[in-house]
């Protein structure tokens, strides 16, 4: 069975998605205030889906635990940048732990720290988790998410608990978010074509033959897991600076399913798939939302019943899997379509 994945550097594979991202950010992100927010959130989600791609796409091991890294990244970035008076006032009744109230760092420093902390936690947990295979690995990563969610939801000493932490400073600039997304994309692309990416795909294709070639499944998976955890942490951090809040509930089951579906719908074996999946699902969701609110879409006014949006998105998702189990791109990277010669 071939699941795809590139091994050779190709400029069109790398530049194609970047150009598409720039065009989307320019034309959609600049169209209106509401579309700007949608684009910004999509860019954050895209970074998250890239994080999933580098690990899940290459290793073939499903991870339900990346929500934990996004949660931690989002938390770290939010707690480091939210104004002292907000942390002091809004959370005083929750007895936020004293040393967490005063720190104040620059947004971009905070983002670097959030990626580093998430990467570190991925490293520590990965030492245990990466020994597992198949469904056991999936459930174990889910257990990680379960613990992170449970602790952050209930512990009011370290964070806002079940409430939201407001006042997180915004990155109100599409181009900075785009830059972060492009940097993540380049990182993930080079991991994918590197030795790590290739050996990881070898373990995905045949978990028996790969060790016979001298590949340590544990080692390559761990490295990918750490990188992937750090990128997921960055995406969480970006999201808290787009939404302006940190809330634990944003990173649980729904988040996990939607980001995994974006990856699988697009095609998990390529970054082009990650891009197609993220922006397609976001676009379909946005168009249906406008239809629910009876707003014109491209000048055409179609109204659909309230609440039917989520049904249609989920149905589309199932339909794509039935139609193409490899995702829309079937795991292929971007390439310029060749014109067929007419003879």
């Amino acid at each position: 069975m071939k699941h795809g994945g590139v091994t050779k550097f190709s400029i069109q594979n790398l530049l194609g998605p970047i150009i598409v991202l720039i065009l989307l950010t320019h034309f959609v992100g600049g169209a209106s205030t509401s579309l700007q927010l949608v684009t910004q959130m999509a860019l954050c989600l895209f970074v998250m889906v890239l994080a999933l791609q580098v690990f899940v796409g290459n290793s073939g091991v499903l991870s339900f635990g990346h929500g934990a890294f996004a949660l931690i990244g989002s938390y770290v970035s939010a707690i480091l940048t939210a104004p002292v008076n907000i942390k002091d006032n809004a959370l005083s009744m929750n007895q936020l732990w004293e040393p967490l109230v005063s720190p104040q760092v620059n947004i971009y420093v905070a983002l670097v720290i959030s990626a580093a902390v998430s990467g570190l936690i991925a490293a520590i947990t990965g030492i245990f988790l990466m020994r597992l295979n198949g469904l056991a690995a999936g459930i174990a990563t889910f257990a990680l998410l379960g613990v992170a969610y449970n602790v952050f939801f209930n512990n009011k000493k370290i964070g806002p608990g079940s409430q939201a932490l407001p006042g997180v400073p915004l990155i109100d600039n599409n181009w900075i978010l785009l830059l972060l997304a492009v940097l993540s994309l380049i990182l993930v692309y080079f991991i994918n074509i590197s030795r790590i990416g290739r050996t990881l795909r070898a373990t995905r294709e045949d978990a028996m033959a790969a060790p016979a070639l001298g590949i340590s499944i544990f080692k390559v998976r761990l490295i990918a897991f750490i990188i992937s955890g750090a990128v997921a942490g960055l995406s969480g951090g970006m999201y808290s600076h787009v939404a302006g809040t940190f809330q634990v509930q944003d990173y649980y089951l729904e988040f996990t399913f939607i980001t995994l579906s974006m990856l699988i719908v697009g095609g998990s074996a390529s970054i082009w798939g990650a891009l197609v999946g993220t922006f397609l699902i976001t676009a379909v969701g946005q168009v249906l939302l406008m239809m629910e609110q009876d707003l014109p879409v491209f000048g055409i006014q179609v109204q659909i019943p309230l609440g039917s949006r989520a049904v249609i998105i989920a149905l589309t998702f199932v339909a794509v899997l039935l139609w193409r189990s490899g995702g829309i791109t079937n795991g292929k990277e971007f390439r310029i379509p060749k014109l067929k010669k007419i003879s």
């Binding site: 995994l260 579906s261 609440g307 039917s308 989920a314 149905l315 199932v318 899997l321 039935l322």
Partner: peptide, 26 residues
């Protein structure tokens, strides 16, 4: 979906689960 990668089937079952939840909600 019979015979496809079990991971894809699992993800499809999430999708189906969401579809049914929303249908119940409606």
């Amino acid at each position: 979906l019979r015979g496809v990668n079990p991971a894809i089937m699992l993800i499809a079952s999430f999708g189906l689960s969401t579809v049914l939840q929303r249908v119940y909600e409606l």
